[in-house]
């Protein structure tokens, strides 16, 4: 026996690796004439990734070219926007992220882009539902019980969040200011670890995205006390919203698609049309419901840019108000 079969196996493995990682190249003509790259600012399997993949799978049919989804996670989406800012604006590189690197990250860390100048937002896919939950056996039967406890026991109410500076965290800190109470924040890394800690009784409440708690609320092991938005929730008419308990603010998180600035207008218009249409298909609407995305109607173009700018300004004020530190220059 000699080493030949082993070498041929190795060669086959290299071929497989190249096939798995190779980008696709082709000539230029009428848009789109080659595959489009959809970068995702978060890891595979997460909410942003699922939205990106399902909307791309629908949109590529009307575009007539495949959309290749690539995950480029890092810095809560800030890494991706840094890359996108310097990508060729030819409509072949798009990005799906949450609005975090647009509206909040620039107030907290030194990012390598100007979130309001360097990009063309294409479409907002929806807003992530959020809420504050406690365990089913908790003495807090309604929202006011929790506030009363916090007022009598300053700093004793522990609550988990998906991390510092996330919207569910900002919501709780704003509430604390408005109600003049003090909570003890325990940051976790993502919705799931925060939910695990709540289920195990290690924290008294948790403020996270609905994906974390919806199953447990339905199964009866957690109780939803408050919805962090002005609209109520389907199937849960008794749960109060921010508006109902008198909080005059909201802390939304959006999922969105954007492109580098200066992409030709006809291309942007085509992308807006195609993705808006893809969003309204029953397939995507189902994904959105499963992902607890709210108000799934397309927000695009100038209206979308205006909304982003207002969110950017609002979170800038919020973050200063609740006293979060920004990274030193």
């Amino acid at each position: 026996m000699n080493a030949k079969p082993a070498i041929s196996v190795v060669v086959a493995l290299i071929a497989l690796m190249l096939a798995l990682t190779a980008p696709c190249w082709s000539a230029d003509a009428k848009y789109p004439t080659k595959p489009i790259h959809m970068w995702v600012g978060f890891a595979a399997g997460g909410s942003t990734d699922i939205c990106a993949r399902s909307v791309s799978a629908i949109a590529e049919k009307s575009l007539g070219q495949p959309i290749v989804v690539e995950n480029k996670p890092g810095g809560g989406g800030a890494l991706l926007l840094g890359l996108l800012a310097s990508a060729t604006p030819d409509g072949y590189t798009l990005a799906t992220t949450s609005d975090t690197p647009y509206t909040r990250a620039p107030h907290l860390i030194n990012v390598k882009y100007n979130s309001m100048e360097d990009f063309t937002p294409i479409v907002r896919l929806g807003l992530q539902r959020q809420g504050i939950v406690v365990r089913a056996d908790s003495p807090f039967k309604k929202w006011q019980d929790l506030i009363d406890f916090a007022r009598k026991n300053p700093g004793q109410l522990t609550y988990g969040t998906p991390g510092p500076g996330t919207t569910p965290h900002l919501a709780m800190e704003k509430i604390a200011i408005q109600e003049k109470v003090r909570f003890q924040h325990i940051p976790f890394q993502g919705d799931t670890p925060a939910m695990t800690a709540l289920l195990g009784g290690h924290v008294m409440a948790a403020s996270t995205g609905a994906l974390g708690w919806m199953q447990h609320v339905k199964a009866g092991s957690l109780r939803l006390l408050l919805i962090i938005e002005s609209e109520g929730m389907e199937g849960m008419p008794d749960v109060p919203t921010f508006k109902k308990v008198g909080y005059g603010f909201e802390t939304p998180t959006a999922q969105m698609i954007s492109a580098p600035k200066r992409a030709p207008k006809p291309i942007i218009d085509k992308l807006i049309a195609v993705f808006s249409e893809a969003m309204m298909t029953p397939q995507f609407q189902k994904v959105a419901r499963d992902q607890e995305l709210l108000s799934v109607k397309p927000l695009a173009g100038a209206d979308f840019q205006k909304w982003l700018q207002s969110q950017y300004n609002m979170y800038g004020t919020f973050i200063k108000e609740v006293g979060l530190q920004k990274e030193a220059k």
Binding site: G45, G46, I50, S54, H216
Partner: peptide, 26 residues
């Protein structure tokens, strides 16, 4: 519980959800 114990499980969780199944107590 619908809790992914590691990154691979998190991807599997996403896969289940794409197929319309929500892992967890139900």
């Amino acid at each position: 519980l619908g809790i992914p114990a590691n990154v691979t499980m998190a991807v599997l969780l996403g896969a289940l959800m794409i197929h319309g199944l929500t892992p967890g107590p139900m």
